[in-house]
Structures are given as C-alpha cells and as structure tokens.
Design a protein around this nucleic acid. Structure first.
Lengths: 204, 204
DNA sequence: ATTAAAATTAGATAATCATCGAAGTTTAGA
DNA sequence: TCTAAACTTCGATGATTATCTAATTTTAAT
C-alpha cells in the first residue's frame, strides 16, 4: 500500500487533537450518530458539531449513511486502524518529495468543459478528494472523474473497487455507491463484480 | 499500570499535532539535539524551538541531558511507546472521574513554609509535575516533595523508583537524579538499590 | 570580574480555529 | 406548493498559539 508522509499523518493528528472531536470519536464508535444527537449530548450547537464532523470526515475517519434528512455518521474503523498503524512510525516519517507536492495541472489536461473543471477544483487537491460534495450536480462531476480510475471492460471485485477509491478519500463506500447511482458503474444483480458502463468508458 | 483518561491522551496528541514539533520528533529520534542545532536545521529562531521543546518535554516526550551551557534533548522512547499503546484505545477512552479533577488542596495540607508551598504550586497541578524547574532552589523543593512518595527504610530498585516517578512526569530519569543529587535519596556505590536518607524521612 | 555561548523568559503580533447566531439547502410529507 | 426537520454554510467573535525581537539567566572560560 502507499507510504504515509509527515504531512498526511499531521492532518490525521490535527483532526483528532481536539477535545470535542475526541469525544465525538467515542460517540461514533460502534454506533451511528446524527449531528443533532451529538449536539445534544455534548451541549454544543449543530453548526459546531457539523464543523467538527466535517473535519473528521474530510480525513476519512467517518463513514456516512444518508436517510431522508438525516445523516448517520460512524467511525471508519479501517481508516482508524491505518492511523494507529502509522502512528508507530511517527519518529521516522519521510519528507514529502517535491515531485508529489501541490500540482493541479492534471485538471487542465482533462477534455472537459470549464464549468466541470471548476467544480472539480473545489473538491480536489493533488488528486485527492478534500471533501464529499453535497450538491448532486457536483457529485456527478466528481463521480465522472472517479470513473476514469477504472479500465473499460474489466470486472472489479468490491474489494478492488474499495482499494482504488480509498486512495482518493477515506469514505470509499460513499464514492462507490455514487459511481453506481449516477450510472458510471454497474454491478451484477444481487451483488458481485463491478464494471464501467460502456457509454461512460471514455470518461466524458 | 495506570489508566489513561481522555484528557491525558488529548495532551499528548496536541503536543505532537504540529508540523514543527513533528519534525523535531524526527530530529530527536536516536540522537541528542540541542536547541541551537534544531533552530538551524528547521530555519526557526531559538526561542521558537525552545517553546516547542518545552511543549514536548512537559508531556514527557523528551529526555534531557545537561552539559555546560548546552542542553541535549532526545526522544523518550518509553513515553512514546506508551503513547502509541494508548492510541489503540482512542475510541473507548474513559471520562475523567470528578474525584480526580483539579484539586490542589493537598499542597495546603503540607507542613511546609508558605514560600515552599508557593514554589510547589508553580510546577504542579493535580499532583503531577507540569514542567521541570530550572532554578536549583525550585528543584530542591520539588525533590523534597518527590521524596514523600517513598517509604522510610525501604529499598527500591531503579525500576521501582522509575515506576513511581513516571506517574509524576515523563522524564523520570531527571527526577531520580535530582533526588540523589540533592541528598533526599541514596544508592549503593556503583549502582543498585535506592533508599531515603534518614534525615529526610519526615519529608521536611 | 568580564565576556561569550546557550538557553529560557517576557512581551507583542499575526494566524489559526472553535464556537455561535443567522441564513441557506435538501428531503419528506401534508 | 407549503411547511417542518436535519443539516450545512456564512460571517463574526473570542481564545489559543506559533513566531518573532529583546531582555534575562546560567554556565564556562579568559
């Protein structure tokens, strides 16, 4: 798997090095929680909790399930396990190499309309998703981009799909569902492999 | 050993969730470093590095060796290992019980002069050392207090002494040496057990 | 005693960020 | 189409803190 650089571990540490967020991690362990629920328990306002949820979610510490007007957040145990594993190398973290520093030129290289490029720029940096879009329109654009990570005519197991998407954002499950929901990928009825839908193979 | 509460782990996380300090952790791994040296390497001023060293040292992440006007800091691997171990319980940390919340009344109960009590209050909170005193006079007062953690006429192995002192501050080695240096404890020539010096048994 | 080196402390500034109230968005249902 | 609930976003505020310069302390050496 990929190596963790100092900058990445730093982001995870910052996400968790806050009293309120540390409490929230405890609350979202082994059960789903809504923003309103946590606001009540911690005696803070909903905007404040929403702010913290966003910080935790953006680094992939949370999984999200949407149901009606509610959003159920829960700890992403896999991401957390990775964090714990990387902590063990905290004294010996490699520098970020210059090559992989801030580069968004890949967006320009896309054969897309300017509007879509602008949207993509909102949510990505260095080829990673900073946060998940809320607006449907934006999520479609992001999903179209994600579809480019897969090869035409190839069948992927769920595990493989997750492995690819987790490079982009910790909440790979939400990304995977969006790919299917917006028609960029299909899967066999009742579960099984995934593959690109033909009309989207070109990424446009 | 003792249980780690949320507040304690939070302190450790905050100490390490900073870009400069994370770099410093790397620098002080497997070798001693001085403030001036790190200031040069990180291109920051000495006061800035001193500030960060203090944050790391206060939570016990560093060991200190003094030599002339220089202070050599190095990672306290034991404390770091403990931190790594506790990270594994991050989702399920207990609250701090009300009983162990902010209580400094124990200082008043001491049969000491007001000046010494005042000094002790500078460096301690809730029975723990916030930071190590620099002034000799202050360190003597702190050492006299530390001596009260031991029983008269009992011999302690170095391991036992360390176990007791580590409850007070992560840099137990410095504390242990101070106890001997200021005459509150003695040890056999050439190493071996420690014991309280008789004239200090009463803690005064 | 003076001086020099290393480190810390004091005080100031600027940036970051947790929190809030108000306003906007999305979804479900009447 | 209107309303209500859940959540997010916006804009503002206050607290924290990383960093600096200047001043102080500590130790060693001349």
């Amino acid at each position: 798997m990929d190596i963790m650089h100092r900058g990445e571990l730093l982001e995870l540490l910052k996400a968790v090095a806050d009293e309120t967020r540390l409490k929230m991690v405890g609350l979202m362990h082994q059960q789903e929680r809504t923003v309103t629920e946590m606001a009540g328990l911690l005696e803070l306002t909903e905007p404040t909790i929403s702010h913290h949820v966003s910080k935790l979610h953006n680094v992939g510490f949370l999984r999200l399930r949407m149901a009606g007007t509610q959003r159920f957040y829960q700890l992403n145990e896999i991401r957390l396990a990775k964090f714990k594993a990387y902590i063990n190398t905290i004294e010996a973290l490699p520098e970020e190499s210059a090559a992989e520093k801030s580069d968004d030129s890949w967006i320009n290289a896309l054969n897309w309309g300017d509007d879509d490029k602008k949207i993509l720029r909102i949510y990505t940096r260095n080829g990673k998703l900073l946060k998940l879009p809320l607006k449907d329109k934006h999520m479609v654009v992001v999903s179209r981009w994600l579809a480019m990570l897969f090869q035409p005519s190839i069948r992927y197991s769920e595990k493989e799909v997750n492995a690819i998407l987790t490079q982009i954002h910790g909440d790979y499950a939400t990304l995977r569902r969006s790919l299917v929901e917006y028609g960029f990928m299909r899967r066999e009825r009742g579960g099984g492999d995934y593959w690109l839908t033909p009309e989207n193979e070109s990424g446009k």
